[in-house]
Structures are given as C-alpha cells and as structure tokens.
Computed example of a mutant assay.
Amino acid sequence: MFPHERLPLAERYAGLLATEGVVRGLIGPREAPRLWDRHLLNCAVLGELLPQDATVCDIGSGAGLPGLVVAIARPDLQVTLVEPLLRRTTFLEEVVAELELDNVTVVRGRADALHGIQVFDVVTSRAVAPLERLLQWSMPLVAPVGALVAMKGASVHDEIEAAQKTLRALRCATPEVSLLGESLLDSPTSALRVAWADPGEVSWPPAPTSPGSRKRGPGRTSSTRRRRR
C-alpha cells in the first residue's frame, strides 16, 4: 500500500498520531495501538480509486485521515486538506512540515468557502456527514469529469437511499460502492464514488432561472461550464 521509499514517512506519521495526536485530542488513546489496521491501512487502500496525478481535496480532514495517508502513499497526487478547526490545522501543518510533504496544502476553513473558487479531480472524506449533506458540501468542488470518493460504513446503502432527492437535484450519476483491500485487510474499506451524470452541464454558481424555462438543479447551466483548475 505504501511504496518502499515512502514507508518511513508513514511510520513517522503514525508516531505523531500516537503521541501528539492523542495529547491534542485528535486521536483517542484507545486508537493508538491499532492505528495501522484501523486508520492508516484502512485509508491507504482508497488510493485504488484515485487517478494518476489527480488533484485531491480532503474535506473535514481532522488528523489527516484519509488525506495525509493518500498523500504519503501517492506522491503523484496534489492534496489539499480542508479543516475548519485551528488545533487540527496546526497539527496538519506541523506534520506536513516535518515530513516535508511538498504535495500537500493545508486550508483552514469550511468546504463551502471554496465553492465557486476551486475544483478538484477527487473530493475525499471520512466520517464527515451523512451522504445527503456530504453531497452538498463536496459536489460543488468536483470537476466536471471528477468524483466524490468517500469512506463509508455499513449503512452506505441506506445513506444512498436517503439521499436520492439530493442526488437527482444535483444531477449526479448513480453512486458506486466498492470494497477495497479485501485481500489485504481484516476489515475491507467501504468506499462510495459519486460522479456527475452529465459533465457538460456542470457549472458554478448557478445561473438564474427565467420564468418558463426548464428548472435545473443547483449549480447547473448549459451555457456556463465550470473549468478545471
């Protein structure tokens, strides 16, 4: 899951999580002994769904899961960690500096602060919110040919069912659920991928709807297309 030359970085990150991460309340004390199987390896397999040389935005990054892990495992990726809490972004910045991760940027703020400003090939998250809310935060950051890729639990199919109205309103493609690391992990990672149904009609912000015109979903017009940045 980690290239040979990147494994020492993963080990140093695990050490920081087990020490500073616990002291600062970012990781529970009981999580420290099982950091590798429950957190690092669990997140690293997400790289299977990330395209080569992609730009990745990890929203609600917390202690860097999964954003920092995939940035360590995949140096070809350009990863932006978005986290609103100062104590968390301080920790993230310290880890990035200590490990000299030149493919990582830390942004303190909410995901919606980037809406209409920046887009990414992939928007990742882990245990941030139910799918209905996650779509509203994430999809405006997804490039036309990009995707939301979220780590989810056993209730993923229930979340998809509950989010049907939002999926239709945003004009998303049918969600895809994958089990990652089945041959490597005792508990495989469940990952949800959501792309746009029609990349040609992705835009931000939405154009006003004139009387009598066909109503479009949030953030969509046929005449204004979002550019990849």
Score class of each variant (00 low, 15 high):
residue 124 T to V: 11
residue 117 I to L: 14
residue 118 Q to G: 00
residue 190 S to N: 14
residue 99 L to N: 07
residue 228 R to A: 14
residue 192 L to M: 07
residue 5 E to G: 04
residue 219 G to W: 03
residue 160 I to C: 13
residue 9 L to I: 01
residue 60 G to C: 04
residue 7 L to W: 11
residue 135 L to I: 13
residue 79 V to H: 00
residue 10 A to S: 08
residue 56 V to A: 05
residue 57 C to R: 10
residue 25 G to W: 00
residue 25 G to R: 01
residue 151 M to K: 04
residue 28 G to I: 15
residue 52 Q to W: 09
residue 148 L to K: 04
residue 60 G to N: 04
residue 118 Q to R: 12
residue 53 D to H: 15
residue 61 S to T: 12
residue 141 L to V: 00
residue 121 D to R: 00
residue 78 Q to Y: 08
residue 94 E to P: 06
residue 134 L to W: 06
residue 101 L to T: 04
residue 163 A to Q: 02
residue 172 C to V: 09
residue 133 R to V: 08
residue 5 E to S: 11
residue 33 P to H: 06
residue 67 G to A: 06
residue 178 S to I: 01
residue 174 T to I: 07
residue 56 V to L: 10
residue 12 R to A: 13
residue 24 R to T: 09
residue 97 A to H: 14
residue 50 L to F: 01
residue 130 P to M: 11
residue 137 W to N: 01
residue 194 V to S: 07
residue 100 E to T: 12
residue 41 L to F: 12
residue 56 V to S: 03
residue 161 E to G: 05
residue 213 S to E: 09
residue 198 D to V: 11
residue 23 V to H: 10
residue 189 T to W: 12
residue 148 L to T: 04
residue 138 S to I: 06
residue 132 E to N: 10
residue 1 M to V: 12
residue 5 E to P: 04
residue 226 R to E: 12
residue 47 G to Q: 14
residue 118 Q to W: 02
residue 151 M to H: 09
residue 201 E to S: 14
residue 41 L to S: 05
residue 159 E to W: 03
residue 195 A to H: 02
residue 102 D to Y: 13
residue 54 A to V: 03
residue 153 G to C: 04
residue 194 V to H: 15
residue 31 E to C: 11
residue 75 P to C: 08
residue 95 V to T: 00
residue 113 A to S: 15
residue 8 P to W: 06
residue 214 R to E: 14
residue 103 N to G: 00
residue 147 A to D: 05
residue 36 W to F: 03
